[in-house]
Design a protein around this nucleic acid. Sequence first.
DNA 1: TCCTATGCTGAACGGCGATTCAGTATGGGA
DNA 2: TCCCATACTGAATCGCCGTTCAGCATAGGA
Lengths: 205, 205
Amino acid sequence: MVRKSAQDRRVEVLNETLNQIQLLGMSAVRVADVAEAAGVSASLIIYHFRTKENLIAEALILATERDLSTLGRVVRDADTPIARLLGALSWYAPTGEARGWQIWIDAWSAAMRDRALAKVLGQLQERWIDAVAELIGEGVAAGDFHTDDPVGAASRLTALLDGLAVRYLVEFARPSHDDIRRWLIRQMAGELGVDEDALAAPRRA
Amino acid sequence: MVRKSAQDRRVEVLNETLNQIQLLGMSAVRVADVAEAAGVSASLIIYHFRTKENLIAEALILATERDLSTLGRVVRDADTPIARLLGALSWYAPTGEARGWQIWIDAWSAAMRDRALAKVLGQLQERWIDAVAELIGEGVAAGDFHTDDPVGAASRLTALLDGLAVRYLVEFARPSHDDIRRWLIRQMAGELGVDEDALAAPRRA
DNA sequence: TCCTATGCTGAACGGCGATTCAGTATGGGA
DNA sequence: TCCCATACTGAATCGCCGTTCAGCATAGGA
C-alpha cells in the first residue's frame, strides 16, 4: 500500500464512493465495495471517515460542489444568453454528460427521511434554480427572452427535466434523447417567448 | 391470533407493508416492522410471502392497481373534459390526496437497479400517460383543447408533476400548494391552448 | 540516521435481521 | 363430532457487514 496524505486519500476514496453509489445504489453500497474498488482495506475507510454514514454524506457534498462548479464552467464557456441557457439546461438534462443523475434520484429517496441530506439537496437545487433564473434574467435584459417571472420559469424548466430524468433513467418506456431535447426546447420557447428555431440551432443563428 | 383465510391475511399484510414503506422507506422497512404493525409474527409474513423481496414487490403491484382504479373513479366522477383532466391531474399532483407519492420516489430509486420493478413502474406510468392522453383527446374532440400531440402533452404534464412532486416531498425549498396548482394550470393552458381562467374555475364556467 | 506521528492492515467482534424449523391450534368439511 | 389441512408461532440459525482493536510500516522532520 502506497501511503498517501490524508487529504489525497480522502478525495480518492470519496470519488470511488460516488462511483459505487452510482453503480449499486446509495442504500446498497457496502464499505467493502468502496474499499475493494479503491484498492484499500475497509478499515482504512472507517479510519478516515469514522462511519459509513459520514462517508456517504461527504461524498454527496463533494458531488454537489462538483456539479455546481461544472455548471459555472458550462455557463462561462458560452457567449450569448440563448447559448448559455441552452448549454446549462442541456448539461442538466439526463441525456447530458452529467453522469451523476442516478445518485440524485437515490438521494431524493433518502432525503425524504434525512433532514441533513435534504438540506444539502435543497442548497444544490436552489443554486441551480438561481443560476438558471439569472441566465434567464440576462436574456430578458438583452431582449432575447420575455417573461416576468424568471425564477418561476427556472423552477418549472428544471422540474420538467427532473421528471424526464426519472423516466430516462428508470429505463422503462424511456423517452428518446431527441424527445427530451425537443421537449426542453418547446418548454423554453413557451416559458421565454422565443422562437423554437432560434433554440434548435443557436450556433447557426 | 385470529385465524384468517390466506387471501385475507395477505391483503392485510400488504396494506400494512405499504404503510410501513411510506413511513420508513423501502430500503429501511424490516419484516419485523410490518409484522409488529400488523400484529402478527415475522414468520407469518415469510410463511405467506416466502421472502421480503417478494413481499415488497407484491405490495407495489397492489399499490399500482389501487392508483389506477382510483384514477378511473376520479375520471368517471367528472363530466366535462376540462373537469375530468383537471381532476385527474390534481389527484396525481403531490398536493392531492394521493398518499402514496413517497413510495413512488423510493420505487424509482430501486427500479434503476431492478428490472422487474422497472417493468411494474413502466406499466403504471404508461397507463397514466395513456389515460391522460385519452382525456386530452376527448377534450380535443369536444373542441375544448387544441393540440396535435396528446400523448406528448400528457408525458410533459405528468413529467412536470413528477418533478414538482420531488420538490414538494423532499421538503426543502418546498413550493407551495398554490404554486403547484398555478404551475399545473399554466402548463395545461400552454399545452392545450385553453384559457387559464377556464381551468382555474372550471365549475363556475 | 533515527524516531515518531500517522497512514494503514487483518482478524475478530457484535448485532441485526431474514429465514428455518419444529411444533401448536383452529376452522371447516365429512 | 372428529380430524386434518393449514394458519400461525417462538426460538434458533446463519450470514452479512459495520466497526473495533492491536499492531505494523513508512514518510519525513530533527
